[in-house]
Amino acid sequence: MLTENEKKELQAALKKYPNRRSAVMDALRIVQNGRGGHIVKEDMLEIASILEMQPAEVNAAATFYTMYNVNKPVGKHHIQVCRNISCSLMGAEHIIKHLERTLDIKTGQTTPDKKFTLSTVECLGSCATAPMMQINDDYYENLTDQKVDEILKNLK
């Protein structure tokens, strides 16, 4: 069930558009942010009923856009390392290996304490400060092994 705050946020989103369906991306984002980073069946059903859509249509939107994690729980800190061309030129693969080693997980996995999930992503538009990664909403740029260690240490 959506919380009161989430409902309010969704109502605000609905004001932006002439029809309800257009708010589906906002609705999914609101729910994902409020649910520790992923979306489950019940969320989609509820969004469908609020937006007067078919559940399948909500499902369709949720799985088209890669930032929605449908039925894919992620850790508290979702580390997404860019591995596109500019970052790769500047050593992204090395950073990914370093993270795998430090967190002791493979890309795509979550640490047993559910604190970190490690993913790779395509270009995040931060190419001049490569290599870089995004952890939840924030960008971390010009990465080196030491910098990564420090960042991880500061994450609670």
């Binding site: 029809n19 984002r29 859509m53 369709a60 939107a61």
Partner: peptide, 21 residues
Amino acid sequence: RGFGAYICGEETALLESIEGY
């Protein structure tokens, strides 16, 4: 706000996306 799809940069895909498709 988009949510992870390069194709949304294509102008008509962008419109579909705003419309919730």
